[in-house]
Each structure stands twice: as C-alpha cells, then as structure tokens.
C-alpha cells in the first residue's frame, strides 16, 4: 500500500522530472521502492539516463538495477526492442544469472510465445522451486491466456506454501468474483481482512460479495461490513453508503413476514441516505434527482 504522503512525494517528483527539473534517478528509486506501476514515465526517464554514458556511469553498480527496471517497464509498454537491448546488456554482464533468466522469460511472455516462456519458467523453477516471482508470473500467464481455471489452480498451489501473501489472496478473490464464485471469494476477503484489518477496501469488497450472495444472514453481515467501511473511511465512501441503503431494504423485504425483532439500528439507513443526499448536493447536484428517485424506490 502506498501511503498518502508517499504518493504526494512521488507526484511532486514526477512533476519536477517531467518539467526538466532533474532528480530522475531519485524518482526512479522511489518508484522502485513503492512498487508503483508508472511504466511510461519509468521508460522515458530511465532511458534518458541509460542513453547518457556520463550519467549512467555515475550510478555505479546501481546501473544494472536501472537496466532491469527499464526492461520491465519497456515490456509493460510493449517496447520490446528496448527491453531486448536492456536484457542483452544484463545477460552480458551476468551470464547464468537467474534474475536475468527471469527477465528473458518475461520477454518471451510479452511477445506472446507462451510455450517458450512456460519452458523458461519451469526450468528456472527446477533450480529454485520456491521462487515467488516466477510462480506469480505463471499465474499471470495463465490469466493472460484466458486460462482462468489454470490461474486459480496455480494460485492455490502457491498459496498453499506462501499463505501469508495477501496480494495473492487479493488476486484470487478478484478472480473468484469474476467467475461469480462468491463463496470462495468471501473466504479470500476474510483472509485479507485478517491480514490487514484496517483497510476499508477489503471490508467494502467483502460486504459486496456477501450482499451478492444474498440470504438474510449474509445481508445482515454485509450491512455490518458496510458500516465498518463507513467508520474506517469517515463516511466518505459513497459505495458503502449506498450499500447500507440497499442492505436495509433487502433485509426488510426478506423479513417482512416474520416477526420483526429489529434490534439493529434502523437509524443507520436514514442517516446514510441523508449523507448521500448531502454528498450529491455538494459534488454532483445535477444528479440529485436520480439519487432521490433511487432512494425512494428502496423506501420500505
């Protein structure tokens, strides 16, 4: 996760570099450290350093890290020739390096020659079966080929060992949602909430999944998670506010016939609705009519 101060720092540096203010290397270091994906900028500024022999040699041994970074960014931008050149330089410097081997595999992958990439990866995995990056690449490759069930299989195998890797859990959750396997997705989101209990996005996604699953109990749980999202975001999350309204009306419909032991706060929905109206009034007053009619249709 990139924190807000880090992001503003990054943006400031990016601005500075874009306008020719120098500090390109610092920018690239920060991008690497935060693991953000700004491939176009990285490619542009990284190449400008690499093409200038004086600047390049000033980096010392960091030069090779930069080659790697630029190569990956180039593959992301489909500048395969640039990537190829970078990898060639690295190959010359570090023959037999597994890290370079990984890059070559990625280049094959970027070209779309899946079979060859698979071969490269599996030979690398033979040497070190616990290479996390390569295992993740295989998942990505399966996904890119449209082989979703293969991706799930790979991910599950990966998670069997690296079960504390929450990024992998998140990927799995999103794949399950895309396949409408909500029960499995709910499990993954629970795992994410466990590993980072204060990230509102996971609460929100979990609530969404529970709401989609339906059923009285799930709806009530979903409402609670929407409420926790509101608490964690300070009421700024529109999706959570709408979720509260939807959940309340769905719960009311389901429990219409039964005796109403409404120990849950009935106030929450009206509060959420008012907050929504206020928010819309401030930021999109022309859409206020849509909102009020939608809310009215939910009214019990």
């Amino acid at each position: 996760m990139v924190s807000k101060t880090e992001e503003t720092q990054l943006n400031r540096l990016e601005n500075q570099v874009d306008n020719g203010g120098g500090g390109a290397w610092e920018y690239l270091c920060l991008v690497r450290k935060l693991k953000v994906r700004r491939s176009e900028k990285v490619l542009k500024h990284g190449l400008s350093i690499l093409n200038d022999p004086k600047k390049r040699s000033a980096l010392g041994p960091e030069e090779w890290t930069l080659y790697e970074q630029v190569a990956i960014a180039a593959m992301d931008c489909q500048c395969l020739d640039v990537a190829k050149d970078c990898i060639k330089v690295l190959q010359k410097k570090f023959p037999e390096s597994k890290r370079v081997g990984r890059l070559e595999g990625m280049l094959l992958e970027a070209k779309g020659s899946w079979a060859e990439a698979e071969k490269a990866y599996s030979s690398l995995l033979e040497d070190n079966p616990l290479d996390q990056v390569i295992q993740k690449r295989r998942v990505a490759m399966a996904k890119a080929q449209g082989n979703i069930s293969g991706a799930i299989e790979c991910l599950n195998k990966y998670l069997e060992i690296f079960m504390a890797d929450h990024d992998a859990w998140r990927e799995l959750a999103e794949i399950y949602v895309s396949l409408q396997m909500y029960k499995q997705a709910a499990f993954c989101y629970e795992e994410l909430i466990l590993s980072q209990p204060t990230v509102p996005l996971y609460h929100l996604a979990y609530a969404d999944v529970l709401y989609t699953l339906g059923g009285l109990e799930n709806l009530q749980t979903a409402k609670k998670y929407y409420a926790s999202t509101i608490d964690l975001t300070g009421g700024k999350n529109t999706r959570a506010l709408l979720g509260i309204c939807l959940c309340t009306s769905a719960i009311a419909q389901l429990s219409k016939g039964r005796n109403k032991e409404d120990k849950e706060s009935p106030e929450l929905q009206s509060l959420a609705a008012t907050a929504l109206e206020k928010d819309y009034k401030q930021r999109a007053s022309d859409k206020l009519g849509l909102l009020t009619s939608a809310l009215r249709s939910l009214k019990i």
Partner: peptide, 17 residues
C-alpha cells in the same frame, strides 16, 4: 467486533451530516 461498528458508523454519519 462488527456489531459495534454499526453504532460507530452512526456516530460518524451524524457528525458528517
């Protein structure tokens, strides 16, 4: 802990409104 969150969310929204 979640049932508690409903009340907290209420408080947050009240403040917001």
């Amino acid at each position: 802990a979640l049932p508690k969150f409903e009340h907290r969310a209420e408080a947050v929204l009240k403040k917001l409104i």
